[in-house]
Design a protein around this nucleic acid. Structure first.
Lengths: 196, 196
DNA sequence: CGCGACGTTGATTTGCCTCAACGATTGTGG
DNA sequence: CCACAATCGTTGAGGCAAATCAACGTCGCG
């Protein structure tokens, strides 16, 4: 394992959620597996079972699915200090409907189902950490749903730019349009309008 | 406490998620508080802190928020065997942005923040049960978001009818329209089209 | 250089909203 | 038990947000 795989980021993440002993931390470290992925490569494809949950040390990815017309619909753009994976596929061992593609060369920690269970048994506090993580995801996706239902594309775009000002530098605009639930052409028109 | 407050439904719910001992079950029962609410009464209003999580023994409710124009936007229609509450408000003790109204006279179990923590300490398996519950909520709301982004109102209505065929008998149509993110008038037109 | 990926622009179409009006049903007080 | 209001669903005309389609300019890169 090379030195790009530092525990410091993920340790800081853990410390923000729960308090653990040095021994518990060591055990946690022991079940983390390193993973690197190059730009344009896929971490997961629809139909595969998602065997891991991933923590992003560095890099940028996108998760998406294909709608019935075959259009890619972007779900999220995980960057540094985010967790990602297909929780449903991972938990129930069923084929995923998601694709995950690296948008930049990325460095990740990964943890498999069996070891995650083991971790929960040995250190129940981690059950809490993951519950808190899911809870935050739930809150975030709820807000996104309400925005999609009740707000215009222009408002959603402005909120996206406020919330994730760094993402547009790393992700092509047409992918952001897809995330917002609009066409690239329409996003372009929104930007023109806002610029004037 | 009268006999309408039966443990059998919630016990069955627990048993579907985790295995516990009779003593653990007794402790769980000891922290449940009974609650009845009449049709048209509110269980929660925006601005209040959500002090409880609720399990529905019987009845039907709706949770909604007000968008910036003051329109009610329905979020879910909890019925028998569902959990509800405002997780964000409950967890972080911040004012809720949700309203919860009973659509029928309803019978609930409720559990407060302090006792929930106590439960997690005494019986860690419950941390798992709540994690699984949140996980299912997350999966459900994700699907709803993707449907809202990528599908037409007609498709969403048909999926709603397949998934919750019993709800339309209990909830007025204009509330279902709001849940689907469309106007009552447009839902009416969709129904006319589908009927022919 | 030439090709593919990306963003922009304009013309046209469509999904859904707004507003206004109108029955049908339910509920409620006199 | 009736009268009346409130609630709920429907219908139609018109309008707007956003999609579709097609064309074009730019940039980075093999």
């Amino acid at each position: 394992m090379n030195e790009a795989f530092s525990y410091s980021e993920i340790d800081a993440y853990v410390d923000r959620c729960i308090a653990i002993t040095p021994e518990e931390r060591s055990f946690f470290h022991s079940i983390l597996e390193p993973k690197t992925i190059e730009r344009k490569q896929h971490l997961l494809r629809a139909g595969e079972i998602c065997r891991y949950e991933y923590y992003v040390i560095s890099g940028c990815l996108r998760s998406y699915y294909l709608d019935e017309k075959g259009n890619e619909v972007n779900i999220m753009f995980p960057v540094e200090d985010w967790w990602l994976g297909d929780l449903v596929s991972f938990t129930y061992n069923i084929p995923s409907s998601l694709y995950i593609e690296a948008m930049e060369d990325s460095i990740l920690w990964m943890i498999n189902q069996e070891n995650k269970e083991l971790l929960f048994e040995k250190v129940p506090a981690f059950e809490r950490m993951f519950r808190l993580m899911i809870q935050r995801s739930l809150a975030a996706i709820q807000n996104r749903l309400y925005a999609t239902i009740a707000k215009t594309a222009e408002q959603r775009y402005q909120e996206f730019m406020e919330k994730y000002p760094a993402i547009p530098q790393r992700i092509p605009q047409h992918h952001i349009a897809s995330y917002l639930g609009i066409t690239p052409e329409f996003l372009s028109k929104i930007r023109r309008k806002l610029a004037s």
